[in-house]
């Protein structure tokens, strides 16, 4: 496949998803441009993770469709060009840092490229713990390994589900610096968070609640339209107004 297909990195069109009686996504649509960082903001249970899983092709929507890099999901070939950092740590605890990163690198088609693995581990500042077992690492370190696994194969689109939870402030700054560099290389990032202060680092934000996109725009636009001083207040403003037309 040609990863440069399509104008948008991600296109979600009128996606509905039910889990039993729970209507998790209610006709949600959004577009994400290449080389940008899109922030999905909303309280727990708003449908952020479900949306990410639909975009990744991990769950099939009841109706509507999703395109990533111009290809309709789910598409296993596209998955070689996407990276996914799950909300949970999701690593093999008995294996070392190197073994974990290597495992996901090889899965994405990067056959035993030691340098790529070492770079990914260096990026998350864990070169010294390369041969430590994951179970021996602190929670924050484990999240860093998880990020390295999501980035090691240099994906075009990266989903980061709450990437900075449990990461100390200094490293959080490093993470965001790196995310910026990735954007400059044309990599598209989707970051979900319920922490509003991270949101202003994103190029565009989508406020999600009850499976609906409440409002969309840059942080400045959203503040201006709502006439509030903080994104938190803005979110409450849009939530009262109901879904955008």
């Amino acid at each position: 496949m040609n990863p440069m297909n399509g104008r948008c990195a991600v296109e979600v069109q009128a996606v509905h998803k039910h889990f039993g009686r729970v209507h998790a996504l209610r006709g949600l649509s959004l577009q994400i441009e290449r080389g940008t960082t899109y922030g999905l903001l909303g309280p727990n249970g708003a449908g952020k993770t479900t949306l990410i899983r639909v975009i990744m092709g991990l769950i099939a929507p009841d109706s509507g469709e999703t395109h990533v890099l111009g290809h309709r999901m789910p598409d296993k070939d596209v998955m070689a060009h996407t990276g996914y950092m799950t909300q949970r740590v999701a690593l093999y605890e008995d294996l070392t840092v190197y073994q974990n990163v290597q495992f996901f690198a090889v899965m994405a088609g990067l056959a035993h490229d030691r340098r790529a693995i070492e770079e990914a581990v260096a990026l998350v500042d864990l070169s010294a713990r390369m041969d430590s077992r994951v179970r021996e690492l602190s929670g924050g370190m484990q999240r860093r390994v998880s990020l390295a696994c999501a980035l090691v194969h240099r994906p075009q689109v990266v989903m980061l589900d709450e990437p900075t939870v449990g990461v100390d402030p200094q490293l959080r700054v490093q993470f965001w610096d790196h995310f910026r560099r990735l954007n400059q290389e044309g990599v598209t990032l989707i970051v979900s968070s319920h922490v509003m202060d991270e949101a202003e680092r994103c190029d565009r934000l989508g406020f999600i609640r009850h499976g609906v996109l409440l409002a969309e725009g840059s942080a400045a636009e959203l503040l201006q339209r709502a006439g509030t001083e903080t994104l938190e207040q803005a979110f409450l403003h849009y939530a009262e107004q109901g879904p955008a037309a």
């Binding site: 899983r53 990744m56 092709g57 991990l58 296993k76 070939d77 998955m79 070689a80 996407t82 996914y84 799950t86 909300q87 949970r88 740590v89 999701a90 690593l91 093999y92 605890e93 996901f104 899965m107 994405a108 088609g109 696994c149």
Partner: peptide, 14 residues
């Protein structure tokens, strides 16, 4: 339970 299966399924493996 650890979520590695979900992560695995987000890779090209079938």
């Amino acid at each position: 339970v650890a979520g590695t299966l979900e992560r695995l399924q987000a890779t090209p493996i079938r």
